[in-house]
Each structure stands twice: as C-alpha cells, then as structure tokens.
Nucleic acid binder design. Structure first.
Length: 348
DNA sequence: CAGCCGTGGCT
DNA sequence: TAGCCAAGGCT
C-alpha cells in the first residue's frame, strides 16, 4: 500500500467547494440542509456512466412527472422505458422502477438511510449506496467513482493500473474522507474531477490541491491513472425491418435480457460478423433495401444496420407481440437511438 | 472477475 | 476523426 495522502486535502477541497460548487438541479447549496433523498437517488442512477449535461433534461422531466417514490412506483413499465429512451444503459431504467416499487411497498415510500440497506436495492451498487448515504443522509461514507479514482491516482502517483488499483484508491480515499461533510467532500471530489482534474488537459493552475498533488509535482498529471489496454471494438452487421401500413409502423418490445432490453424497437435480425440479409424477417414481403445503412456505435461493438422496407395495404396481425405505432407520433414511442436514427432516415 | 450494457461530448 | 471517456451495476 502507498503512503497516506496529506490530510489537508479535505479542508482545502471543502473550502474550494464552498465557493465553486456547481449549481445542479438535484443539489442543495453547500452548508444547507441535505436535499430530498428521492432526488439524490434519481440523479445518482441517471449519472451512472453518464455526464451531467446529458442527465439534466431527463432529471427535470422525471421529477416533474414523478415527484416522489410512490408516484414513480405507480408508472407502467413501458411508460418508464419510453421516458428513459436516449439515456442508454436501459437496465438502469428497469432497476430504477424495481427499486421505486420496493421503496414504496416495503419502506413506506422513504429510502433507507444506511449504506448497507441501500446496497441491497436494485440498481444501487457500492458507489451509489455510498453517495446516497453521504449526500442525502449526512453519513460518513467513502465515495469512489471514476472522478475520484482519477484524482486520487494523481494525488498519489499510483502506478498500479486500473482496475487493479481500485482497492488502493478506496483505502486512500477513506484516509482523506472527513467525518463531517462527507457528502460535500464527495461532491467536491467529483466537481474537481469533472471540471479541473479532467482526464485530458487538466487545468492544474486552477486546482485547490495542486500543492498536495504528486502528479503535478512530477509535471505530467495526465500520465495518471494508468489503465489496462482496451480491446478492439468489433464491427457487426444487422438488418432492421420497416413495415408500414395505414400510416403506422410495426414496433416490437425487446426482451429484458440483452441489448436495448425492455425497449420498444423496430424488428431486427441477428447482429453478426457478416450482413445477415433478410434473416429473421418478421413476415414474407417484397422487401426493399434502403440505399444507406444506419451506423451506430455501442460500448463494445460498432453496428452497420441495413434497413429493409415494405408497405402493406392493411395492418397484419401476423407478427406476434408487435404493435402498430402511428407515424405521426414516433417521438412518443421512446425508441433507442439506433432506431431513432432509422426513423429520422425514413422521414426524409 | 471480466464481459456485457448506450450515448453524446470532447480532443 | 477516431478514439477516449463518463457520478457503475449485474452476472
């Protein structure tokens, strides 16, 4: 284990946070009473692997429609998934709803206030449980996200690459987390990582703790954290099927497991190393292949998806579990971006 | 534990 | 621009 970090980091960081904290819709100003746990929880789930600017409009829409756990717990699955459309990582939406229902049914509509109890709820892992306990309930918790990992790795010039360095980083973070204001400290670390101690081109001259930063002293802070090399992203090919009839298009609900799980979508064939053509076409029809493909990049592969079109005289019921959606209301369908791109292409 | 799981911003 | 990256959780 490396040497401990200077204990002055917490006080320096909190003093900086008192002046420079970002004003965010889910955040109470420094020193004021803790914000509503529902809003903290909702924001933390939305913020998992997702940047602040992307989350804000979704957070505003969700809190306007569903102001508390009971309201959210009463939503139908499809309505919730449609509202989440575009945010990505759709398992978060399924877990969000499951969590809201547990809170409404088993906890009287109020989130439990300990890390241990929070950790057992759907969609709440080690990071989110610590963040909620600290920010919403004022408990001392060690909050480690990707920002904290980067900041701590630089402060301590950790040469162990991620993710192997995670235990060391957690121990070092524990060592500088204050007993009071652990929530503000966590948010200060994350603000610092998001605005100053950035992954590339860090703004060290604005940093309140550069005097305690070993990476700054070395003169090359962007050299940390070290990371294990990434795998190359494979290219895959697929086909989407556009079946139009009487001003409607056929949509299907994707299974909960797997890519875009639980989301409404255009029917698709398999996604493979070679173009699958009309494999798994929902019906036999006179398919026309659009002249351009829909390109979309997911986390672990890139997809070139052909678009097969056909028009029918009537809305066939030959496709089990399909539903006909009016073309004039495609925005309300809540399609993942891959399919929203196809809709945009068809509307031209 | 390592692979799976979206999307948009930034350089 | 092509790749890197982000307030991770689940299995």
């Amino acid at each position: 284990m490396p040497a401990k970090l200077p204990l002055t980091i917490a006080s320096d960081l909190l003093a900086w946070y008192d002046v420079h904290a970002r004003q965010l819709p889910w955040r109470a100003p420094p020193g004021t009473p803790a914000p509503d746990p529902y809003r903290v929880w909702l924001s933390e789930v939305m913020l998992q692997q997702t940047q602040v600017a992307t989350v804000i409009p979704y957070f505003e829409a969700f809190t306007r429609r569903w102001p508390d756990f009971r309201a959210l717990a009463a939503v139908e699955d499809g309505e919730l998934m449609a509202a989440w459309a575009g945010l990505g990582y759709y398992a978060r939406a399924r877990n969000l709803l499951a969590c809201a229902r547990v809170v409404a049914n088993d906890y009287g509509g109020a989130l439990p206030d300990t890390e241990e109890a929070l950790r057992k709820l759907p969609g709440i892992g080690a990071y989110t449980a610590a963040a909620i306990a600290a920010i919403a309930f004022g408990r001392r918790a060690v909050v480690v996200d990707a920002n904290v990992e980067r900041v701590v790795a630089r402060l301590a010039v950790l040469d162990t690459p991620l993710p192997a360095a995670k235990p060391e980083i957690a121990a070092l973070t524990d060592g500088i987390t204050p007993d009071d204001r652990a929530g503000d400290f966590a948010q200060a670390m994350m603000d610092l990582g998001a605005t100053i101690c950035t992954a590339r081109a860090p703004r060290c001259m604005l940093c309140p703790v550069r005097g305690e930063c070993a990476a700054f002293a070395r003169g090359a802070p962007e050299q940390w954290p070290q990371k294990a090399p990434r795998r190359v992203k494979p290219q895959r090919y697929g086909t989407m099927f556009w079946i139009e009839a009487e001003g409607h298009v056929l949509l299907v609900r994707r299974p909960d497991k797997g890519m875009l799980g639980g989301m409404l979508a255009l029917p698709t064939g398999p996604w493979e190393e070679a173009p699958p053509g009309l494999t798994d076409a929902p019906i036999e029809a006179d398919w026309q292949i659009a002249d351009t493909v829909v390109r979309h990049v997911f986390t672990h592969f890139a997809l070139d998806c052909a678009l097969a079109e056909t028009r029918l005289d009537r809305q066939t019921d030959a496709v089990a579990d399909g539903q006909w959606w009016p073309l004039r209301e495609m925005d309300a369908a809540g399609l993942p971006t891959l399919f929203a791109k196809a809709v945009a292409k068809m509307e031209k």
